[in-house]
């Protein structure tokens, strides 16, 4: 039987990595680590270049919509590469019959988010397909940012060392749970909104001393578990995470307990991990906490030389176990 694409291959976990490695990277001649943006020489300087597509369902969710998400997602891929995001493209695939008022609302929030993040949407494309040929609206954005040479080490993590601290900019999983809750019409005692946000203001602040920042990555599909496992494999280092130190929003914990999800595998759209020199870690957390987006940031673990390529979790009850790469379908179409 011919092999067919399954939803699990689009999930951001191990199957998605295999798909990219076996079917894209090798054919496009892409070698080396899979980073969030491509870093390219442009005359004297460097630029970072990235692209992302958005197919989220529902289109509007607490804390944002597909348009805001499409801007934040691409801005964040550039920002965590150490670049200063500048220019975005926006391409739309729209299903026949889609409400123009909804399109206007989506585009208005793209404009507002681009403005807030200090980037310009400078080119675009629109296709309309017959009813049933896509689900309402899909958006692709691509982005270009300027990359100072002293930030070049960040996306590949080449200067990461044993003893470096692992910092998270806020509680993970709010986005995935907000989407799930709005899909299933669940409500919570404390309202839960998506963490969807542009991170370039935060990265700009912590990169004022770029040498102390050794790596950054935003948490998207597969959550903290996927990012840390990719990182441990890429750098060939060990990682220890203290479960107690990871901030988790109460509604996220509650829903995970009920549905059997691990909050560490759930997606965010406005959170990142930072690997920093040990002496700079507290200062970076202080800078992060001074910004509303980083108010709950914390040091959650460190880089070790043991068990290279694996992430060890010290559970809050005193036990130890691996934090593995999530696999298969967690939640479809969350971004």
């Amino acid at each position: 039987m011919n092999e067919k694409i399954t939803l699990g291959q689009g999930s951001g976990g191990r199957q998605a990595q295999d798909l990219i490695r076996d079917h894209f990277a090798s054919r496009f001649g892409m070698e080396g680590p899979m980073t969030d943006s491509a870093l390219l020489s442009a005359g004297e300087g460097m630029i970072a270049f990235t692209t992302d597509s958005f197919v989220i369902d529902p289109l509007f969710f607490p804390g944002g919509n597909i348009g805001k998400l499409a801007v934040c997602g691409t801005v964040n891929d550039l920002a965590v590469s150490g670049a200063e995001p500048r220019f975005l493209s926006a391409a739309f695939i729209i299903e026949e019959g889609f409400e123009v008022s909804e399109l206007d609302a989506i585009v208005a929030s793209m404009a507002a988010e681009a403005d807030a993040a200090g980037v310009m949407i400078v080119t675009g494309d629109t296709k309309v397909v017959e009813k049933g040929q896509c689900d309402r609206i899909f958006i692709n954005t691509a982005g270009v940012g300027l990359l100072p040479r002293e930030h070049m080490h960040i996306s590949s993590g080449v200067s990461v060392k044993e003893g470096d601290r692992l910092i998270i900019s806020g509680p993970p999983g709010d986005h995935a749970v907000a989407i799930l809750a709005s899909r299933r019409k669940l409500s919570f005692d404390q309202p839960l909104i998506s963490d969807c946000a542009s991170l370039n203001r935060l990265t700009g602040k912590i990169l004022e001393k770029p040498a102390a920042v050794h790596f950054m990555r935003d948490l998207t599909r597969g959550g903290l578990a996927a990012v840390l496992n990719e990182f441990a494999t890429m750098i060939s280092c060990g990682l220890t995470v203290n479960e107690e130190s990871v901030p988790i929003a109460e509604p996220v914990r509650g829903l995970c307990e009920i549905l059997g999800f691990d909050p560490l595998t759930l997606a965010s759209e406005g959170r990142m991990v930072i690997v920093a020199a040990p002496e700079a870690a507290d200062r970076i957390v202080e800078i992060l906490r001074s910004d509303p987006l980083g108010r709950e940031s914390a040091v959650i673990g460190e880089i070790t030389a043991e068990r290279r390529g694996r992430v060890v979790l010290n559970s809050s009850t005193g036990g130890r176990r691996f934090l593995d790469m999530p696999s298969g379908l967690l939640l479809p179409r969350i971004c």
Binding site: S315, T317, G319, R320, R321
Partner: peptide
């Protein structure tokens, strides 16, 4: 089974 492994009970 899942809780035992998730909380690292064997290590305790």
């Amino acid at each position: 089974t899942s809780a035992i492994h998730r909380f690292g009970i064997p290590s305790l």
